[in-house]
């Protein structure tokens, strides 16, 4: 049911954990529905210097979070805002139809983290 990439990111998720003193935090999802994702970012000169996540959810939610953080690293704010849920799913070798919402969650997570960063840095 899941691709090799999903399984790899689920088994060995990258960038896991809470971040000390992040510049932005995005919290999305709802534990009531069985998923919640928190993305932490550190920004230097408009570039995502560091990123990490904590996710409560299924294998697809965890691997989407992991893939998203990998895709964000080293990019500018403007670039990460261009990341779409479809790109996340594609990089994971596709997601089953009923799990697409997990990649949407990841995309929402990026926006929430950037929003928070922009608010804080005003």
């Amino acid at each position: 049911m899941y691709s090799k990439e999903v399984m790899d990111h689920f088994r060995h998720p990258r960038n896991v954990g809470k971040m000390e003193n992040p510049d932005g935090v995005g919290k999305v999802g709802d534990p009531q529905c069985g998923d919640e994702m928190i993305i932490y970012i550190k920004v230097e000169n408009n570039i995502i210097k560091d990123v990490s996540f904590e996710t409560y959810g299924c294998a697809a939610a965890i691997s989407s979070s992991s893939m998203t953080t990998e895709m964000m690293k080293g990019k500018t704010i403007e670039e990460v805002l261009q990341i779409t849920n479809k790109q996340v799913a594609d990089n994971l070798g596709g997601l089953p139809a009923n799990k697409i919402h997990c990649s949407v969650l990841a995309e929402d997570g990026i926006r929430a983290a950037i929003d928070d960063y922009r608010k804080k840095s005003k």
Binding site: Y2, M7, F10, C33, G34, D35, Y56, G57, C58, A59, A60, A61, I62, K99
Partner: peptide, 22 residues
């Protein structure tokens, strides 16, 4: 989340079920 659990167990050849929505 139960599905993550079920899936990990399934990979190890252990078959159970969960009440999770996912």
């Amino acid at each position: 989340e139960g599905e993550a659990m079920l899936f990990s167990l399934s990979e190890m050849g252990i078959y159970i079920s969960t009440g999770s929505a996912c």
